[in-house]
Simulated scan of single mutants.
Amino acid sequence: MIAAGGKSIYGASVGILMLDARFPRIPGDMGNALTWPFPVHFRIVRNASPDLVVRRGATGMLDAFVDAARELVDEGVDGITTNCGFLALFQKELSEAVSVPVVTSSLMQVEMVNRILPAGKRAGVLTISASTLTEAHLRSAQVPEGTPVGSTEGGQEFTRAILDNELTLDVEKARADNVEAALAMKEAHPDLGALVLECTNMCPYAADIQTATGLPVYSIVSLVSWFQSGLRPPIY
C-alpha cells in the first residue's frame, strides 16, 4: 500500500468553529470532545463571545469566521460546522468561502424534521435567546415561516450562565430550565411533533427533554453525526 499525503491533519473529518468562551462545557456539549464518537478538529474564533454572537448579531465577526474556516480546510478537514445556532447568519458566506460542505446551525434541520412528522404535526425550535433570534437567522437556515419558538430565557440558570460566559454552571438548574421551556412549548402548541434545539449547549439535556415531552428531539449532535456520516461513510 502507498499512502497519499497532502494534509496536515488526518482522521478528523469535521472542523468545528468555536466561540471564544470559558463557561463549562459538560459531556454532550458540542465543545466537549468526549461528546463525539468520531474525531473532530476545533478552532477558536477569537473575540467571538457568546454575548456578541447571540445578543449582538455577531457584528463585525464574519471575516474572522471565514479565515478560521479556511484554516481548518487547509489543515485537512472535510466539512465545517459551528458551535452556535445563531451563526446560521453566516451560512451563505462560509459556504462560498471554502471548498468543503458547511452546516452552520442546528436550525437547518427544522425543514427536514417537518417532512418526517405525521400529518398535522410540525417541529418547533427551542432557543437560548428568543428575543434575539431574528427572522434573518431563521431565513438563513430555511426555517419555515410561523415555526413555533420557545426559549430558556427567564429561567434560573441556563441562558444567563452561557451568554454571560460564567465560569460555573449549575447543571441541574440548567437541565430544569430546558425541560420546563420544552414543556411550555408543548402546552402552547398542541400540533408540536418534535423539537429542534437551536443551542449547541442544550445537547446534554436532549434525553431529559425527550423523556419529559414524549417528542423526538433533534440537536447539533444529531445533525453533525449525520453530516459526518456522509463525509466519512462507514466501511462494512
Score class of each variant (00 low, 15 high):
Cys203Thr: 04
Ala207Val: 06
Gln210Ile: 01
Val224Trp: 06
Leu169His: 01
Val224Asp: 13
Pro216Leu: 06
Ile162Cys: 03
Leu215Gln: 03
Asn165Ile: 06
Arg175Gly: 07
Ala174Pro: 14
Cys203Trp: 01
Pro190Ile: 09
Ala182Ile: 09
Asn201Arg: 09
Glu172His: 12
Val179Glu: 00
Thr168Asp: 08
Gly214Arg: 05
Leu167Trp: 00
Asp170Ser: 09
Thr168Val: 12
Ala161Val: 11
Ile162Lys: 00
Ala181Pro: 13
Ile220Pro: 02
Leu223Ile: 13
Ser219Val: 15
Asn165Met: 02
Pro204Lys: 10
Glu187Asp: 09
Glu187Pro: 07
Gln210Phe: 02
Glu166Arg: 09
Val221Trp: 03
Thr168Cys: 03
Pro204His: 10
Ser225Asn: 14
Leu192Met: 02
Leu167Ile: 08
Tyr205His: 12
Ala206Thr: 00
Ala161Leu: 06
Pro204Asn: 11
Arg160Ile: 12
Ile220Ser: 15
Gln210Trp: 00
Leu197Asp: 06
Val224Ile: 15
Met202Ser: 10
Leu167Glu: 08
Ala212Phe: 07
Asn165Arg: 03
Phe158Met: 09
Asp208Ala: 10
Trp226Tyr: 13
Ala207Gln: 03
His189Gly: 10
Glu198Val: 15
Val217His: 07
Thr168Pro: 04
Ala184Ser: 14
Trp226Val: 15
Thr200Asp: 07
Ile162Val: 15
Leu183Pro: 02
Thr159Val: 11
Ala188Tyr: 07
Cys199Tyr: 07
Val224Glu: 14
Thr211Leu: 08
Asp191Gln: 05
Ala176Met: 07
Asn178Phe: 03
Thr213Met: 05
Thr211Ile: 09
Asp191Asn: 05
